[in-house]
Design a protein around this nucleic acid. Sequence first.
DNA 1: CGGGATCCTCGCGGATACTG
DNA 2: CAGTATCCGCGAGGATCCCG
Lengths: 123, 123
Amino acid sequence: MPKETDDPKQQPGAGCSIRGVLDRIGDQWSLLTLEALEDGKKRFNELMREIGDISKQMLSKTLKHLEQDGFVRRTVYPEVPPRVEYELTEQGRSFLIPMKTLIGWAEQNHAAITIARQRHEDS
Amino acid sequence: MPKETDDPKQQPGAGCSIRGVLDRIGDQWSLLTLEALEDGKKRFNELMREIGDISKQMLSKTLKHLEQDGFVRRTVYPEVPPRVEYELTEQGRSFLIPMKTLIGWAEQNHAAITIARQRHEDS
DNA sequence: CGGGATCCTCGCGGATACTG
DNA sequence: CAGTATCCGCGAGGATCCCG
């Protein structure tokens, strides 16, 4: 893939927009971060603790991406010690709907998947 | 992450099952492959052409994962030249629903995201 | 406390060649 | 045609230190 501009080989409607958005929310952390922000404002270290096994860079990078894409609003309070809070924007909250659908499916089928996965191990 | 068994730090309901499933469908290719299989049986090279910029290993690996997780059924026809066809299972088709919801959201909001993304460039 | 800069590792994933 | 095996570059991402 020499260029990152739109690939004319791709269908303009379907595949194109999917990739752009899913590449972002597809990574391990974005969904978990959005989910952690679901129930209100959170501070940086608060998010780290909630997500658990995420490093600072990854959380920082993920939040920056989410902010850049309009999912998250970042508010800095000019205090000392500094305090920064993150919260979902309207767009971010609207995304929770398809996301919840996905998570719901995952929870319902995750057992079946685990079984299918193990069945393949004995082969 | 020394062990891959369930992490007791995680909530058993929410975060846990999300990760297991999303790790699989989260990668670049699984979703595109499932989408390519949406309208019926496909052969290997047919899938490669349809997806476009996927290599043989990645398609092979992705299909193997999807088969292992019960999303895809693989059928080998004992002919010469060999023919192999892939198709969605029931579970695979059921997954199309949340997936479509997600894609639909992506298509609707992808323009807004692009704008938000560019707005951040001038900063 | 909230991150940025740096270093370094590890495995994703492309290219190619080979097999059945 | 439908993969598997091998080599290898490169970038994601963890650890650590530092700064405002």
